[in-house]
Amino acid sequence: MKFGVVVFPGSNCDRDMYDALVHDLKQECVMLWHKDSDLSQFTTEDCIVLPGGFSYGDYLRTGAIARFSPIMQSVIDFAKRGGKVLGVCNGFQILCESHLLPGVLLRNNNQKYICKNVFVKDADENVYNIPIAHGEGRYYADDATLNKLEANGQVLLHYCDAEGNVTPESNHNGSTRNIAGICNEGRNVFGMMPHPERACSSVLGNTDGRKVFKLLFQLVLEEAVAAV
């Protein structure tokens, strides 16, 4: 799998993502400037990554201006053809603004920027310790959308405590139903607020991010097998 990391004005986790993919996960990766629109070097087996940061200074709404960058129409077309797309933090916000994922990301319920390590768990009850760093990370969707996400197994990660309990106290930004990450119905577009790329190096004392990437890779593999 080849990765392309998009750089928007205001991206500040693009190099973190590149470093984690190349040096920690040993994947092929290239940087993509937001004004470029040519994704012909990528096949639908590859993955475009929208990293974290403050694209366009988070003016209007987070991700609202980046959604109209030249590269985004190509990313949307790529996703519609079955190409893999991952959005982390600001990237998740851009995916929602682009309607590649349902719902919106609202200001944290405490109205403050949060930067800390938190616990999240996947559908198999595996718990990961992953950093978050956002001011508008409160996932919201209406009940019909939320019920559909849960029924289809599209909720990838929930905020939880160290034992895996999903509690109000472990929901640091107030996300609806403790949701930390989701995917689309086709299971080729993924969005999450936690930063797995910041937890991939043993030098940083945390490699749980590698497990989260492995989870995503496994989901992609399962979808590819199901499509055969």
Rank of each mutant, 00 (worst) to 15 (best):
E125T: 14
Y139N: 01
Q27G: 07
S98F: 03
N171P: 00
F119W: 02
A180R: 03
P194M: 04
H158R: 13
T62I: 03
V203L: 15
D46Q: 14
G181H: 00
I94M: 03
G53P: 00
G153I: 13
V155I: 05
N184W: 06
L219K: 10
F68E: 09
T44I: 07
D16N: 11
K214R: 15
E163N: 11
D143W: 08
V75N: 09
S69Y: 03
E97N: 05
L25T: 02
E150I: 06
G10T: 00
C160I: 12
A66K: 00
Y128N: 06
Q93A: 06
C29Y: 04
G164R: 11
R138D: 01
V203I: 14
V120P: 08
M1K: 13
E169L: 10
G83N: 14
V228Y: 13
N129H: 15
N171S: 10
F8P: 04
F217Q: 13
T167P: 03
V5I: 14
D46P: 07
D161V: 09
Q218S: 15
A133D: 06
L32K: 02
M192N: 09
V7Q: 08
N165V: 11
H158F: 04
G153M: 15
D58E: 09
Y139P: 01
K35N: 13
S74I: 00
S98P: 05
D58V: 04
N188F: 11
Y59G: 04
A226F: 12
M31W: 05
G135K: 01
E169G: 06
I132V: 15
V75R: 07
V104A: 12
C96R: 00
D122E: 02
Q111D: 13
E197H: 12
N108Q: 06
I130R: 02
C29T: 15
E136P: 01
K214E: 14
L221D: 13
G53S: 09
L101P: 09
G87Q: 01
D36H: 00
E97H: 08
G63S: 04
A133Y: 08
E125V: 12
R67S: 04
I179E: 01
S202E: 15
V189K: 01
L105V: 05
I76P: 03
V85G: 03
L86I: 11
A199G: 08
A199R: 05
V120C: 12
C89N: 14
D46K: 02
P196Y: 01
V104T: 10
G153F: 07
N12F: 03
V49E: 07
S201Q: 10
V127K: 07
E169T: 15
M72S: 00
M1Y: 13
V104R: 10
Y139R: 02
S98I: 00
P102S: 11
N126T: 12
V120I: 12
L101I: 01
G164I: 05
D19E: 11
S69I: 05
F3D: 12
Y18A: 06
R67D: 15
V88T: 02
L215K: 09
L32A: 01
P70Q: 08
H99A: 14
L95Y: 02
L106M: 02
